Amino acid sequence: MTDNTTHTRPDLPFEQRLQYLADRVEIQDLMVRYALGQDLHQAGDNGVLEQWDTVFAPEATVDYSAAGGPPLKDIHYRALVDVMRGSDGSMSGLLKWQHFQGVSAVDMDGDTAVARTQHLHTHKGGTDGQGWNLIETGFFVDRLVRRPEGWRIVHRTLEIIWMDSFPTV
């Protein structure tokens, strides 16, 4: 991230600082809609694109290789739905989940931005009659562009800080 964000420039006109705040709120809403796309669609409901199509630009790619190796590097965001939600997808053994997104640190340069957003993702699963929980922490690093329909992610990189699982009682 750079250090040339509008919020660190009190010498800019009030209107520019106000626009920065409006843009930040819109970008933060994108981050929440991404998580809502995951969390509102559980128990076999794979309709995450209802939200994700309002988060990502049509040409957007994601790099989730931190979670699953080279096949997840720079794939189209719609392909990620199959990787996660398909019959053998990474979420196929999960019973419930919730994705918490932190407040984004955002650097803007006109109609482009870079956002780094903390996340805490919780998952409840079961294998052979044994319950377990999985927690993942990390960041999403997003490149965004302002479009006529609003801010959209054009590329997302997943960074995992740590992940752990533990049995349920």
Score class of each variant (00 low, 15 high):
1 M>Q: 09
1 M>P: 07
2 T>Y: 06
2 T>D: 10
4 N>T: 09
5 T>A: 12
9 R>H: 14
9 R>E: 12
10 P>H: 10
11 D>L: 02
12 L>K: 03
13 P>K: 07
17 R>P: 01
18 L>I: 12
20 Y>Q: 08
21 L>H: 13
27 I>K: 00
28 Q>P: 01
28 Q>T: 08
29 D>I: 06
30 L>A: 00
30 L>R: 02
31 M>N: 15
31 M>L: 15
32 V>L: 13
37 G>M: 03
38 Q>P: 01
40 L>S: 10
40 L>N: 12
46 N>Q: 11
49 L>G: 06
50 E>A: 14
50 E>R: 12
52 W>F: 07
54 T>E: 10
54 T>M: 10
54 T>A: 13
57 A>F: 10
63 D>E: 06
64 Y>N: 04
64 Y>D: 00
65 S>V: 02
66 A>V: 04
67 A>H: 00
67 A>Q: 09
69 G>W: 06
71 P>F: 08
71 P>W: 07
74 D>P: 05
76 H>S: 09
76 H>G: 12
79 A>C: 02
79 A>I: 05
80 L>H: 02
80 L>D: 05
83 V>H: 15
84 M>S: 07
86 G>C: 09
90 S>A: 12
90 S>L: 13
91 M>S: 10
93 G>F: 12
93 G>N: 11
95 L>W: 00
104 S>E: 03
106 V>A: 00
107 D>R: 07
108 M>T: 10
113 A>T: 00
115 A>W: 03
115 A>D: 04
119 H>C: 03
120 L>V: 13
120 L>A: 11
121 H>P: 00
121 H>V: 05
121 H>L: 11
121 H>I: 04
124 K>Q: 14
125 G>T: 01
127 T>N: 13
127 T>V: 14
129 G>F: 02
129 G>P: 06
129 G>S: 01
130 Q>M: 11
132 W>V: 01
132 W>L: 07
133 N>L: 15
135 I>R: 10
135 I>S: 08
136 E>A: 15
138 G>D: 05
138 G>H: 03
140 F>V: 03
144 L>M: 03
146 R>F: 03
146 R>A: 06
155 H>C: 00
157 T>H: 06
158 L>S: 02
159 E>A: 10
159 E>V: 14
160 I>W: 02
161 I>L: 15
162 W>L: 10
165 S>L: 05
167 P>Y: 04
